[in-house]
Design a protein around this nucleic acid. Sequence first.
DNA 1: CCGCTATGTTAGAGGCTTCTAACAATCGTG
DNA 2: CACGATTGTTAGAAGCCTCTAACATAGCGG
Lengths: 171, 171
Amino acid sequence: MVKKALSASQEDYLEAIFELQADGQAAHCKDIAARLQVKMPSATSALQSLAGKELVVYRPYEAVVLTPAGRKIAESVARRHRTLSGFFQHVLGVDPDEADTAACRMEHAIGRDIADRLTRFMSFVGQCPRAGMQWIRGCGQHDPGTRNTEQCERCIRMCLDKLQGSATGQT
Amino acid sequence: MVKKALSASQEDYLEAIFELQADGQAAHCKDIAARLQVKMPSATSALQSLAGKELVVYRPYEAVVLTPAGRKIAESVARRHRTLSGFFQHVLGVDPDEADTAACRMEHAIGRDIADRLTRFMSFVGQCPRAGMQWIRGCGQHDPGTRNTEQCERCIRMCLDKLQGSATGQT
DNA sequence: CCGCTATGTTAGAGGCTTCTAACAATCGTG
DNA sequence: CACGATTGTTAGAAGCCTCTAACATAGCGG
């Protein structure tokens, strides 16, 4: 049995249900529809379709629950979402709202491999002493075409000092 | 008159026509269909729809041409594509083929602001002496959870030396 | 217990994209 | 010039996703 990729829309439904459950709420049709900004009949038919794929347990008039398979997919979507949103916010400096809506659109298109690499890259940037969050902020001031060797040298020395400071003392 | 956003599919058609033209080829229905991996009737109806929006000049049995408005959109899509593909390849280390297909899927979802920031970020990474393409390669070896202060110190000193070397001499 | 309101579902339609099958035009070659 | 091959179009259907309108169920207050 070859499992066919879900549509962006269906991933959205799974993700919405997942997040409602994560918030400790029962996932009712109305809440799902509200979160995805669609009308209830759209949600109903999506749920029926997902139930057909055994990704949710759906019985009319009851709150819907993810099956293990559904949960697995939902988690994967949510993870891609967080990765993208985090990258946009913390690396590119996008404000949280915009980061989130962009992540919502792109989460369906980014593949697993690239998402993993992005995660890894963020971890690297956060931990590598040559980089770090303070360095990232420099991107804001960066003017392509200009260089200031002296200033760069100072910047790197500070970076080195900071590394030596942290190595010999505080956590 | 409010110009409504095009669908991903329509953006793809414009981009394909744009690239055919850029390659110096007349954009014939067959080539467009081949490039997008759809059958010809799909291309025909897409072209008719784009013609209705005045984004292409389409007359039956003739090669299609972008209007200025169409070209503008096509260029914007192509630019987003290049930005994403370049980021995937040069920052995340993805191989060219995968980078390209992922860029193809994501180019429709990334907004202008984020694409611009990504471009800026790549320029920053390429030019900042603390970063650079050699530094990026370190991401491949990066193991979250491990640190080696001594090695990091050596890395930063090399980076400083390189800056000083380039400041006093060679281009 | 009845009926009202909330919530949920069904039915049916419309937009969009794609497809296959059938038809039409174009172009090059004998 | 004409015929066959290639290219392009039209017609019609299917799959998705969404919507509105109408109907059904559930749950609560009187």
